[in-house]
Simulated scan of single mutants.
Amino acid sequence: MGTAENGTAGIAAEHGQLINVAYRLLGSVTEAEDAVQDAYARWFQLPPSRREEILSPGAWLTTVTGRICLDLLGSARARRERYVGAWLPEPLPDRTEWDRAGGAGASGPADPADQIVLDESVATAFLVVLESMTPAERVAFVLHDVFRYPFAEIADVLGRSPAACKQLAASARRRLRAARAEVTASGRADVVRRVKEAWRAKDVAALVGLLDPAAVMTADGGGVAGAALRPVEGGARIARYMVAMADRAPGLELLERSVSGVPGLVAQRAGAVMTVASFEVRDGRVTRIWAVRNPEKLRPWAGVTEGAAPSWGARG
């Protein structure tokens, strides 16, 4: 859990790992960066003699970051109750898809989102399941099952025994298994491409054919951008809703992009990203759509360009 180097360069090297941990715990790039900065601030507030006593600054920073995230998760329920409409995790771009086409420049300011490794543990479907866990379950599961930290170290974060932390991770694992069919669906790329074509053509019948009859669409506008405040249920209703959205936004461009590591769609208008959509697919049909429209959650997507080709590869 970290290095044994106490110098400034050594702890700076931990930043990327800490951001990866904090984002998976919080589902928010902004909150993850704030948590990591808070952890670093606490490190530098330590007397130099105390810092010298810490053999592994990385382990210390991870423990402190985990505790900060645990506190934030504990208060998240109240924050979500005040949130306008549904709350969804922030979607992450794969900048390698569009930097080559003249998007965000590599010489620009560092973005915490760029340091997050895109894998199954940041997919929207996965993070939505994490949201159903208790804060302690989520911390125990993410640190152990995703980052392979031992329960003895996780116990320091949670203030519980290693045995109790092991039980928390097992409980979280059961929650994940219950939703596993939705998390690990394959064949998304082709289906997402066909959804894009039907949506662009405003073909309700084609959309209905691509959507599971029991599909659910959840939109996150945060009270800032227009979005359904409650999930839209049923393939036919979702299809009509999607076409109505397109009718209200002439000139909308739909781009195939990796969204948090899996195939998704980005809707932009006059060069500005308006919506980032994630999909879950089962048996060749879309079962879930998560559409993020809150502009505060779309900041990492600034500069996305139409000319870039998606690099989905085997992840589709």
Rank of each mutant, 00 (worst) to 15 (best):
A59T: 03
A41D: 13
E137G: 05
Q167N: 12
R100C: 06
S171K: 13
I54K: 01
A59F: 07
R177L: 14
A113Q: 02
P47L: 01
A59K: 12
V128P: 01
A155K: 08
A113K: 02
K166T: 12
V84D: 13
G105K: 13
Q167W: 04
R79Q: 15
L118Q: 11
E53G: 03
R174S: 13
V129K: 02
P47W: 00
A76L: 14
G159I: 06
V36T: 06
L158Q: 10
A59L: 09
A123W: 11
R95H: 07
W98Q: 03
V142Y: 07
H144Q: 10
E81H: 11
W98M: 02
S56Y: 06
I68L: 12
R160A: 15
P47C: 02
R160Y: 04
A164F: 05
E90D: 15
R80E: 13
F147G: 07
R82L: 15
R160G: 02
V142E: 10
P93G: 02
I154F: 05
G58R: 03
E131R: 13
P91V: 04
T124R: 05
Q37E: 12
R100D: 13
V122M: 03
L168A: 10
D71W: 05
A76V: 05
S121I: 01
D145I: 06
D38P: 00
V146G: 06
I116H: 06
R95W: 07
L73I: 09
L72P: 03
A163V: 11
P135K: 11
R174I: 08
S121T: 15
L55A: 14
T96S: 15
A101E: 05
R100N: 10
W87G: 05
R50S: 12
L61V: 01
S132L: 09
F126S: 14
P57Y: 00
R77D: 14
G58N: 04
R77S: 15
